[in-house]
Design a protein around this nucleic acid. Sequence first.
DNA 1: GCGACAG
DNA 2: ATCTTGTCGC
Length: 231
Amino acid sequence: MTTVDIPAGWPATEEEARAVQDELRVRVLLDETGPPPGTGRVTGVDVAYDDERDVVAAAAVVLDAASLDVVAEATAVGRISFPYVPGLLAFREIPTVLAALDALPVPPGLVVCDGYGLAHPRRFGLASHLGVVTGLPTIGVAKNPFTFTYDAPDAPRGASSPLLAGAEEVGRALRTRQDVKPVFVSVGHRTTLETACAHTLALTPRFRLPETTRRADALCRRALREATGGP
DNA sequence: GCGACAG
DNA sequence: ATCTTGTCGC
């Protein structure tokens, strides 16, 4: 497990952070299909916090895309690098997530983030930010619709409906289990919404949330507990 | 101005 | 995200 410092020059204000987003957003690549689901590797990343002790723990878990078996995992801990501000989540998570990704012994393949990519006030959410910084194909799978609107998808697993910012489709509400609240999928970097949804379905054979997210969530919580103390 | 708001 | 008991459902 590696320890992370807040990077030099990291934004200190919301204004600075928004300026960074406006600079980096032009580097998002949207003209690639992205890796096909069910082949190669897929990696989940997630973060857990102890605001009281100013500690953040990140985890990266690599799965074989076909079997969903764990191939590799890594964690990192650090200081919380930014307060939670809707629209600026990436600045809270990225330094520690990058350290966890760097600690992996194998290439991550497509990265699945817990949050949004293009479905973002400035079209540059966590998944897009992480993609631009790493160069990796990324998608975002969120549990809530954020500020966006959608009509309920049909009941069967696999049904979807547009996630809308006004008239613009910024993602998809995708039903991963029949009659259960959908997840909210958006493109991060170097892939398409079609591919992102296909990956999400391939990663949800049983539960609402992708196996990548579930594995990363469990691991970062454990890392936080071990870094912080108490059994 | 007020409320809503990924995690 | 996190604080947290019981509770409903498969």
